[in-house]
């Protein structure tokens, strides 16, 4: 079997000796196969991920029509987005919504994770992890449909609970001041699963020897957690905050199912605004411009978060 040796890395040739495959060195065949194997992925990635990036820039400077003439309009779409009251309102609402959801749900997930991790029995730990993650595996649409019932003014359980403690019923989704906070509340209660699991994993990965060492040094309870737990949680915290902010700024399904942007634009978010421009007004140019502005805002936010946290991480 000595002839096997020079076939290392080019065994493909064995069965098809009649076809004159080019002889490749090891390094060359590494390269060729490397590119061949990623080719299917890269083709779809280029067409459906990279091409849209280019297209969206083009769309944002034209007046696009599904059938008919597409004209170059310069920055007019951006001007429209910036000047349109519903667009301004949607930007404001999205940030307000994210500002309500992200801090509260991050803090709540961290608290829950601390409580879960502090359980001694590992089966109870995984039971509670599953209990908190479960509402997260079902679709946003199903969650929103369920909450539409919960929020109902006449027959919803929330107002029933209020009546038990003799409070006036609240028009959760119909009041311009209550509607957006109601959507935020729904998100806070129903989408903590991933964050809780990430915090649990991060907390469990902190070696207990650190705590023992701190105890030997006489560190008190709060000091221990301030100087060990929090710094070691920073990467997980960064991930959770960035991902949940990204999700909150793009919120669409609850708005679509529960309020349709109303009452009086009080719950119109950037996602719903873009959807409206695209589907109801066939205004792909304005929608693209709004999408790009959202992109700039979120990328900016992500970079700021990374900067801020990288200062904290180097302790």
């Amino acid at each position: 079997m000595t002839d096997r040796v020079d076939k290392i890395g080019s065994g493909w040739r064995q069965g098809t000796k009649t076809f004159p495959w080019p002889r490749l060195t090891n390094a060359q065949s590494e390269k060729v196969w490397g590119f061949l194997l990623i080719a299917p992925f890269m083709i779809f990635f280029a067409v459906f991920f990279l091409l849209p990036y280019g297209m969206v820039i083009w769309l944002s400077v034209v007046d696009w029509h599904p059938r008919g003439v597409t004209e170059y309009v310069g920055l007019q779409n951006y001007v429209d987005v910036v000047e349109m009251p519903s667009a301004q309102k949607s930007m404001f609402n999205s940030f307000y919504y994210a500002l309500m959801v992200v801090p509260i749900s991050t803090a709540l997930s961290l608290l829950t994770a601390v409580l879960i991790v502090s359980l001694r029995s590992s089966s109870l730990r995984s039971f509670f992890q599953a209990a908190f993650y479960l509402p997260g595996v079902i679709s946003g649409l199903a969650v929103a449909i369920i909450w539409r019932f919960v929020f109902d003014f006449h027959v919803g359980v929330l107002n029933y609970f209020l009546s038990l403690v003799r409070l006036e019923p609240v028009n959760w989704l119909g009041n311009i001041y209550a509607a957006l906070p109601s959507l935020a509340g729904m998100a806070i209660v129903s989408s903590n699963g991933v964050a809780i699991i990430i915090f649990c994993a991060a907390l469990l990965s902190i070696p207990s020897s650190l705590y023992d060492a701190a105890a030997v040094d006489g560190a008190a309870f709060w000091r221990k957690h301030w100087s060990i737990t929090l710094p070691l949680l920073t990467p997980a915290m960064l991930y959770v905050i960035v991902v949940s902010t990204l999700g909150a700024l793009q919120v669409f399904v609850p708005v679509y199912v529960l309020t349709r942007g109303g009452p009086v634009h009080s719950t119109i978010t950037v996602g719903y605004y873009i959807y409206n421009q695209l589907i109801f007004y066939a205004n792909a140019g304005t929608a693209a411009a709004a999408g790009l502005l959202l992109l700039v805002a979120t990328v900016g936010f992500t970079i700021i978060q990374f900067r801020r946290f990288s200062q904290v991480v180097e302790f």
Partner: peptide, 11 residues
């Protein structure tokens, strides 16, 4: 890390 909405219109 890029919001889906920004390229959704193009897709």
């Amino acid at each position: 890390l890029v919001p889906a909405w920004s390229t959704l219109i193009a897709s």
